[in-house]
Design a protein around this nucleic acid. Structure first.
Lengths: 227, 227
DNA sequence: AAAATAAGTTAGGTTAGCCTAAAAAACTGT
DNA sequence: ACAGTTTTTTAGGCTAACCTAACTTATTTT
């Protein structure tokens, strides 16, 4: 059991979060200096600087010229930030009626508020939600993260009926596009036909008219086969 | 009509807020370097540094060796921060059921979240409250601040019946003390007797047993004569 | 395996926001 | 009005977090 003696700056928290998310999308291969520099919008030299500091604080495992990964303390911290981010997103949507493409930027600020009690009470106030407005799972108070086995719609590559569970891209533009397609988390997507050339799909959302999803879209829609 | 081009750091916001609150408690005489250094817990030299920067950003009126005051842009900013602080305090108490001595520190962080839309929606969600949990008035969306004419209980110095409207001190210790006295905003305080030596008061809160308020307490209770 | 390219690190510099210590200006009391 | 005290500013330093440019290590190509 660790207690956090040193306190962690907003900047450090952002690095930890970035390492966590890159590591996740790399299936645990860690994060490279360049990937971090890209994600955080600063130069590679600055990243190396910070990695040394984070290593001294025992938040990451770092060896020169190798990709970094989080220590258990770092991971605990990262999961805490993700939990806060996603809870605040739920708050912004459910209680303040923001749209799902508007909540990310504000949650990005709110996730750094430091009060364990606040997180506990917010969680309870929201009814202990398990998913955020984009379908991402919310870690519980113990830092346990349930990973749903949703996969990109494009991955199935076959005719069938699917449930839309989440998105693999969180940009405003993409989310607004989904809104204009009339697609919401939980919707049923029926794949009627697959184009052999560009892999675009002819689909029906719920009981509406059929329409087309390009692969750019279908690869970012996380779904499961409908039971 | 001004649009804020330069962006303002968290530290700068805290200076602006400090100038605003000192100026208010000084009846518009402005804030001195020493007062700021005391309130912000840093040294006078650092304050002078920052005052120069704030003057360059046109947020304050600053002349060497004189006390500073806010420009109209600075005041607008300060009122916006106060509004956010007090709205978040209401949220923390009304929705998350924090106690009134717990909300200040968390609101101190939340007040820096930058989203006008968020403030508007939070305000609406809370039912456009006019006062925060300590009885302080909440500026409206236009930056209009209604100043109630409550005065310290000690100021009246006479037997009578008063309504408890707010506190002039926000420390945890003081608020907890009031809680242990059983005193809440809106309560009726009946002053039965005034001690000529130490100005302590014999009072009745609502219809409870009588008890004593030292002047240290009665000078921090903002009341109005009960109608 | 050597050369070319990509990735990562180091060194030296900047700015914001703090510090201490010394100097300057503004008050205060007689 | 002037000597002493207090307040404020200045000067010179520090650290976190960034930058650029040069250099080193790793990887890929031929």
């Amino acid at each position: 059991m660790y207690i956090c003696i040193v306190d962690i700056s907003l900047t450090e928290e952002n690095y930890i979060k970035a390492i966590f998310s890159i590591n996740a999308s790399n299936k645990g291969e860690g994060a490279s200096t360049n990937e971090l520099s890209e994600q955080l919008n600063n130069k590679a030299g600055s990243v190396t600087d910070m990695l040394k500091r984070l290593a001294e604080k025992k938040l990451i495992h770092y060896q020169k010229y190798k990709s970094v990964s989080l220590s258990s303390a770092g991971e605990k911290l990262a999961i805490g930030i993700v939990r806060k981010h996603r809870l605040w997103e739920v708050f912004l949507m459910e209680k303040l009626h923001f749209k799902w493409d508007e909540v990310h930027d504000i949650a990005e600020e709110l996730e750094h508020i430091k009060s364990d009690e606040l997180v506990l009470r917010l969680d309870a106030f929201l009814g202990k939600p398990r998913f955020d407005p984009h379908g991402d799972p919310i870690p519980d108070a113990k830092g346990h993260l349930f990973l749903p086995h949703a996969k990109p719609l494009s991955h199935f590559a076959r005719i069938g009926t699917y449930t839309f569970l989440g998105v693999a891209e969180h940009s405003k533009l993409f989310l607004q596009h989904l809104t204009s397609l009339g697609l919401k988390i939980g919707d049923t997507i029926k794949v009627l036909d697959i184009n052999a050339f560009d892999h675009s799909l002819m689909v029906k959302i719920n009981r509406n008219e059929h329409q087309f999803f390009s692969e750019a879209v279908s690869s970012k829609l996380l779904v499961d086969i409908k039971k």
